[in-house]
Design a protein around this nucleic acid. Structure first.
Length: 867
RNA sequence: GGGCGCUUAGCUCAGAUGGUCAGAGCAGCUGGCUUACAACCAGCAGGCCGGGGGUUCGAGUCCCUCAGCGCCCACCA
């Protein structure tokens, strides 16, 4: 019954342009969504389906509310994940020193040993592969029924995105918000690139304290603890807390490093922790970020030894900056270390220290947090390099204010943003020493000696963007001048992937490329995203919008949770517990999977639950069945309207439905799609179980034939039609396929373009029936509740007697208050029909306070009555 | 070390501003081929709302505290 609906309606929606953005609306009439561009080089997993469904329910709701929904789809294809995938897929590696080869084609099958190719060739392969990946994603999204306008797609490596990234960078450069700086940089030696604070993660790693003895001027020994003895040659000071009495007399003096005999000052700084190790620490250039702080604030010397490849670089002991009490001895020791990785060097220097007697005791193993690039496998090193930065530290007050201004769903997610902004330690490093990314649109002139003048960059003209300085020549130069003395070189770096992703509100809105469109969609209404990238994507987007536009990029941030595996464990490739969505979609259908996704509340981590999907599938089937049934009762004539609803039971149902509409609407306005689904579902099941059973017969019409229908029948038919229409629309955001199918059985257009139901549309059915409009507050026991109550008693009795639901009831005797009995009698005929009751008698509850209401059911052809 | 969230029937979870709030759905059990629906329907059973203390006439619902679980952040000596 459900099978095949996905393909059928996807094709119809596409051909009818159901989700096409129509740019006639002004900003107030538009609901714009800054859709997260999924990383296409990653594998599809169920988490994508989860959060994108959340957004889609909101998009569909807004569309039905009459908003022109701007719902584009981006593909995040720039950056490291794509590079890695291309290297493996084609068996290539990028060598930026090579020239572009226009005739290059990748080998098939890929060679065992990677072929070195130029950056333009490499980028072309990246583009080729991502296009194929994007097709796979689009197919999945369309199967899932995302109401995206598929004419509005962009890629983060695409021309629009490159132009926007470069243009914004040039703006920042002009205003001084971007700057270039040679400084200690967190460096991944395997990827050969700098990384930013946002891409770090701490991992607990085993290490060891090594206690080393330095020689003080007075001949005594000063002992420090270090986990990185291999950095001893890079030691530039010892540091203690200013209040630490043990070391106060040493501060201001110098000590000699063991093995290398370098004289280093003993200094004081409040960051030194008296109870950590011996309370006095060795400062190296650079072992960790605290070293950088000390080095910068105390203006210490610079002696760097770790190179970009993670190995110790050669050093000339005795040369300026490398003075030693015994340069020859220092040189001999250092020769043992140079060229080794930090790990190898550590093993060797520990032996040398032990032999020299400078090691105090044995190394003491500990575990401690070590900084890693989140995608990396080796601890980060800190090396000195030239990088581009965006000033974020100075911006903190504005960023905090913007965070308060943004409406967070759920609200507590704002804490993560706040704590991130408050904890910022450095400006945002946006340059990466990689290849598949947006290049910096600058060149550097070469002086007569062929050295680049970095402080005098040549900036690309904005009307030429996007440019690639590795293949394009700057204004006033010819390509032949590249690399020649007096010529130029291009900036070799590309931007951090977040430097582009942070502009998605601008890129998706076609900022400056299409100012008319941009004015209609920006600032966007909604940024949906997961909570793990608040510090990266959300944060950086706020930064860029603040600097570029001086406002928030969106009004609302809807933060979705993660999908956990069925055992509630976080899914990860390494654990092998990643759930792929396609088999689930095939097994249960898109509506069913969407139902499961929508049952995950905003911000809540949710486990994959096929049981929920089965429930969703059942609901979708029920909707089709109930629709078929209702439509079958409506007869051939015109469907009567709301004014035909006169029967108390029917009016009661619509009152209840009106409340459901109000709740669902309020929930959607608060981005609580789960609640909206819940209230619709609860109503729908009771509608099927009780109301449909009660009016089944009446809706047929007594004599059946044509024009002789009584008002009771007309009332039932009107109620059924109105309710079905409203219910289908309430479910449309969640189950777009089943609702569309049922809707088109009796409508021409799409349910997804139908107006969202309103209270006004349902009206006040009491009023329509001409009775007691003031009755609202004193509804007493609604007719439907009373009828369902009695019907339930009849069912219970039949079940207890192990009889069929079709079994007749000889006599039904109800004892209750006069008010409740009166309510019941308003639906007497329906109750009797639904229960198969021959005789219904009532008895008013006596004044005796101990008297109890009761229902006595006497089954036909059966034994003992009970109550 | 700081912050945030969670702890309610076997399972997954609802329970605004404290007073029909002890709920739903799965699973379980008992029945029924009821002319919309057997991938269905009807019914039943199920919990001292993590522990302790407090505020209140009254607390899953507010405050304090303890214990687990999860996540985010943090300067690697």
């Amino acid at each position: 019954m459900l099978d095949g609906l996905e393909a059928k309606w996807d094709a119809t929606w596409q051909s009818e342009g159901t989700y096409r953005f129509d740019r006639r609306a002004d900003r107030a009439g538009v609901f714009s969504i800054d859709t997260p561009p999924p990383t296409v080089s990653g594998s599809l997993h169920i988490g994508h389906v989860f959060s994108y469904t959340h957004t889609d329910t909101v998009a569909r709701y807004q569309r039905m509310q009459g908003k022109d929904v701007y719902y584009p789809m981006g593909w995040d294809d720039n950056g490291l994940p794509t590079e890695r995938r291309v290297q493996n897929y084609f068996g290539v590696r990028c060598d930026p020193t090579l020239a572009h080869d226009p005739d290059f084609t990748p080998q098939d099958p890929p060679p065992d040993k990677p072929v070195a190719i130029s950056r333009p060739n490499f980028v072309a392969l990246c583009e080729q592969l991502t296009v194929a990946d994007e097709k796979v994603f689009e197919t999945l999204w369309r199967t899932l029924g995302l109401s995206v306008d598929w004419d509005l797609t962009y890629a983060t490596i695409g021309e629009t995105a490159r132009r926007a990234s470069q243009r914004s960078f040039l703006h920042l450069l002009r205003c001084g918000h971007a700057y270039q700086h040679e400084a200690p940089t967190l460096w991944d030696v395997d990827f050969g690139t700098a990384v930013s604070q946002a891409e770090l993660e701490d991992r607990e790693r085993p290490g060891a304290y090594h206690r080393l003895a330095f020689a003080a001027e007075n001949g005594s020994r000063v002992e420090i603890d270090t986990t990185r003895p291999e950095l001893l040659p890079a030691c530039v000071a010892l540091v203690a807390h200013p209040d630490d009495r043990r070391y106060q007399s040493l501060v201001g003096t110098s000590v000699l490093t063991p093995l290398f005999g370098v004289s280093v000052p003993v200094v004081a700084h409040p960051l030194a922790e008296p109870d950590k190790g011996t309370g006095i620490a060795m400062v190296c250039t650079f072992g960790d970020t605290t070293d950088v702080t000390w080095w910068r604030e105390l203006r210490l010397a610079t002696r760097t030894i770790v190179g970009r490849d993670g190995r110790l670089e050669p050093v000339t002991w005795g040369a300026p900056g490398w003075e030693s009490a015994d340069p020859e001895a220092a040189g001999r020791v250092y020769d043992e270390l140079a060229g080794r990785t930090v790990r190898q060097a550590q093993a060797r220097i520990v032996e040398l220290l032990a032999d020299s007697g400078a090691m105090v005791g044995e190394p003491r193993p500990i575990t401690h947090p070590v900084k890693f690039f989140e995608k990396g496998e080796r601890p980060l090193e800190i090396v000195s390099s030239r990088q581009w930065f965006i000033r974020t530290l100075d911006l903190r007050p504005q960023l905090l204010a913007r965070g308060d201004e943004l409406e967070w769903h759920p609200p507590y997610m704002s804490h993560r943003y706040r704590s991130w902004v408050e904890g910022l330690g450095s400006d945002w490093n946006i340059s990466r020493q990689r290849y598949f990314g947006v290049p910096f649109p600058v060149w550097y002139p070469l002086d007569a000696g062929g050295s680049p003048r970095y402080d005098d960059p040549i900036v690309a003209p904005e009307d030429r963007l996007p440019v690639d300085p590795s293949t394009d020549a700057p204004p006033g130069y010819r390509e032949a001048d590249r690399g020649m003395p007096g010529g130029f070189i291009g900036d070799p770096d590309v931007m951090d992937t977040w430097a582009t992703s942070s502009l998605t509100p601008l890129i998706a809105g076609r900022w400056e490329d299409d100012p008319d469109l941009f004015a209609r969609v920006f600032p966007m209404d909604l940024r949906p995203q997961a909570h793990d990238i608040i510090r990266t994507w959300l944060f950086s987007s706020v930064v860029r919008s603040e600097l570029e536009m001086g406002c928030l990029p969106w009004a609302h941030a809807a933060i979705s949770g993660w999908v956990l595996d069925p055992d509630r464990k976080k899914m990860s490739k390494s654990k092998g517990n990643v759930v792929t969505p396609l088999p689930l979609l095939e097994r249960h259908g898109a509506d069913a999977v969407r139902y499961w996704a929508a049952s995950g509340r905003p911000g809540t981590d949710t486990a994959v639950d096929e049981g929920q999907m089965k429930v969703g599938r059942r609901l979708a089937i029920k909707i089709l069945n109930a629709s078929k049934f209702v439509l079958g009762r409506l007869g051939d004539g015109a469907v009567p309207g709301r004014t035909a609803v006169t029967t108390p039971l029917d009016r009661d149902l619509l009152v209840r439905l009106s409340a459901v509409v109000a709740q669902a609407t309020a929930s959607f306005e608060a981005f609580d799609y789960t609640r909206a689904l819940e209230v619709a579902e609860t109503f729908f099941w009771s509608f099927c179980d009780d109301y449909l059973e009660l009016v089944k017969t009446r809706a047929y019409g007594a004599g059946g034939a044509g024009d002789g229908l009584g008002p009771a029948t007309t009332s039932a038919r009107a109620t059924l039609a109105i309710t079905l229409s409203v219910v289908l629309r309430l479910f449309a955001p969640f189950l777009p396929f089943a609702t569309e199918e049922a809707w088109r059985w009796w409508h021409d257009g799409s349910v997804h373009r139908a107006p969202w139901p309103t209270h006004a549309e349902l009206g006040d059915p009491r009023e329509a029936g001409g009775s007691a409009p003031e009755d609202d507050t004193e509804a007493a026991t609604p007719v439907l509740d009373m009828a369902a109550h009695v019907l339930g008693a009849v069912r219970r009795e039949k079940t207890a007697a192990k009889r069929s639901m079709r079994a007749g009831v000889e006599r039904l005797h109800v004892v209750d208050t006069p008010e409740r009995l009166a309510t019941l009698l308003q639906a007497e005929a329906d109750v009797r029909e639904a229960g198969g009751v021959a005789v219904l008698t009532t008895e008013v509850l006596g004044p005796d306070p101990s008297a109890l209401a009761s229902i006595t059911v006497t089954l036909a052809d059966a034994t003992g009555p009970t109550g």
